[in-house]
Design a protein around this nucleic acid. Sequence first.
DNA 1: CTGAAAAAGAAAATTATTTTCTTTTAAGGC
DNA 2: GCCTTAAAAGAAAATAATTTTCTTTTTCAG
Lengths: 133, 133
Amino acid sequence: MHETAELLKEHHLKATPQRIKIVSMLEEYGHINIEDLYSHMLEEFPSVSLATIYKNINQMIESGLIQEVKIPKTKSVFELIKEPHLHMVCEKCGKIEDICIGTEKVIEEAKKLSGYDIKESFITLRGVCPECQ
Amino acid sequence: MHETAELLKEHHLKATPQRIKIVSMLEEYGHINIEDLYSHMLEEFPSVSLATIYKNINQMIESGLIQEVKIPKTKSVFELIKEPHLHMVCEKCGKIEDICIGTEKVIEEAKKLSGYDIKESFITLRGVCPECQ
DNA sequence: CTGAAAAAGAAAATTATTTTCTTTTAAGGC
DNA sequence: GCCTTAAAAGAAAATAATTTTCTTTTTCAG
């Protein structure tokens, strides 16, 4: 069995071909928006419905398999949930990449200044990637 | 003349009562979503159109007066543009606050690891505010 | 105070997302 | 492997969000 199918099962989602394709695309591309997801799905499943995409995306969010990433001035994309990371967005080519770096300093300082008990951080950095420089 | 009106003029926007109210609300609340903006506007301008709200918000974004802030699992809000800052969101009461802290460390490290030439950063921290703890 | 350009408001159009309903399918038990 | 059944897919309609179009009203420079 696909390991992708197992991933779905672990999240109590039936391993339908459409869901396997969605998860495979997330694995392949890392980040993808609804529109691109739909157009790629159409290649393999010519009669797939946009409602199926939305329903599956929402179920995958509810089950903790994926999450929405909101990026300024851009359509939201979705990604598989993994260890905490931040997002690098290239303003030239539009590429989105994940990087893992320590954010304790910022979080600690924010905590000190604001008094908040901080649970999560969402960091997006926009600039120009090495290939576009 | 209102200083709010002058702020609009500086951004080449005519100082209509509706725009003055929008900017005043942004000054008062700091962050506000379209829905709340509209319902407060209705109190003062019973015949205001939602299209007017959207058109003004978009013009204010284009002119560099305000910007959209996208927050995970929440409707977007808008804020007046000011010095760079990050956003604190209370997961209990929903409050959004700005804080200014240094982010050079994170940005420097991200630059080193990714090779990106970083131009902007967008940071949102979610947690529990002092009042809700 | 007047005219031109822009904005407001109303309504329609478009786009995005969700819901409903019927048919099809995945997968556990035999 | 074959049933059964709950869940998913697909189609279409419904709802929500946003934008556009068009006419009337208003701002504001001269």
